[in-house]
Simulated scan of single mutants.
Amino acid sequence: MGDRHTVSLQAVDAKAIGARPFRFYDLVMVAFVVVLLLSNVVGAEKRSVIDLPVIGPWPFGAGILFFPISYVIDDILTEVYGYARARRVIWAGFAALAFMAVMEWTVVHLPVADGWTGQAAYERVFGGGWRIILASLCAFWAGDFLNSLVLAKMKIWTRGRWLWTRTIGSTIVGEGADSLIFYPLAFYGLADWPVAALGQVMISQFVLKVGWEVVLTPVTYAVVGWLKRAEGVDVYDRGTDFSPFHVGV
């Protein structure tokens, strides 16, 4: 795949643009946080199954349907706006996840009014417990920062060519870390998550997440090309401080 959308753009180092405002950065940030929160609420705990030819029934986590979109948006953020601005969005997502966890715990533990019968269902959906909350936060933090770091570094190494290699390559690293951290930390030792099933889900999650990235590559190319043309720059992270704890741009 080519990268013709970068030809007429001004290639600049991330430090050179400083705190310059961008037209669509805030909207991309909002999209990232929304997808991240909803995918963690709606599908994180449910284990589904699909009957594959030859292989037979294969379990997978339902969150796989939408969570990988957050990695696609992370790729777009890093590719278009650079690692430093992607880092700020990742921290915004982390803060939103932490607040969501506090909100869930608070609402679940509020006293129940007489006559309301939905508490058990509410606890089942939103009372995931400290393990799932901790696992989600740790997996998200490590996976997304690795994804963004690898993509930014690869963009320098490839001189901005072969976008597909860095979107897929960074996803392999980031999603691999995410799956390796989340599932054992969240579900290992639970009665309804036997070790065999846990291993199957981890593998299927990783394969499906990377597969999603491959399938969505044309969409990534289209969005990246459009945003770069709209913003008028092609950002490279030469000289960028890649520490995840530095929040400046």
Rank of each mutant, 00 (worst) to 15 (best):
T117E: 09
D178T: 11
W157I: 05
D192Q: 11
G199V: 02
E104M: 08
A197C: 04
N147I: 03
R131M: 13
R88Q: 15
M100E: 15
M103S: 09
S170W: 07
F126M: 14
R161K: 10
V201L: 12
G115T: 05
V112N: 06
S179P: 13
V108F: 02
G174Q: 11
W164T: 04
H109E: 13
M154L: 14
V125Y: 12
V173D: 07
D192H: 14
A120S: 14
T167M: 07
M103I: 11
V108Q: 05
A191D: 14
E79T: 09
A135V: 06
G174V: 05
F126Y: 15
Q119H: 15
G118Q: 03
H109P: 04
T171R: 01
Y122M: 12
L190Q: 15
R131N: 13
D144G: 01
G118P: 05
A120N: 13
F140T: 00
W164Y: 14
T167G: 06
G143E: 07
R88W: 13
K153V: 10
D144F: 06
M103W: 13
I132S: 06
E104C: 03
N147V: 02
K155P: 11
V195H: 12
I172D: 03
W193C: 00
L146H: 07
G127L: 03
R131D: 12
L134N: 08
W164R: 01
A139Q: 11
K153H: 13
W105N: 01
F126V: 05
W116Y: 15
A84S: 11
V195W: 15
M154P: 07
N147P: 12
G174P: 13
L137C: 08
D144L: 08
P194L: 01
R124M: 14
R124K: 14
A197H: 09
C138R: 06
T106V: 10
G82S: 09
S136K: 01
T106Q: 06
A196P: 00
L149M: 08
K155G: 03
A197V: 12
R131I: 06
V89E: 04
S170Q: 01
S136F: 01
F94L: 12
L163R: 05
G160P: 00
A135S: 10
D144W: 03
E175A: 08
E104Y: 01
V107C: 05
G189F: 11
W91G: 04
E175T: 04
R161E: 10
R161F: 03
E104A: 09
T171I: 06
A191L: 08
G128C: 00
V201G: 04
K153C: 00
L137P: 10
I181G: 09
R159F: 11
T78N: 01
A95W: 14
L151T: 04
E175N: 11
S170N: 00
L198V: 10
V107W: 13
L149F: 15
F99H: 01
D178Q: 08
I172Y: 08
M100P: 10
I132R: 05
I168S: 00
M103H: 06
A152C: 12
W130D: 02
A186K: 04
W164S: 02
N147W: 02
S170I: 04
R161P: 00
V108I: 03
E123W: 12
V195F: 15
I156R: 12
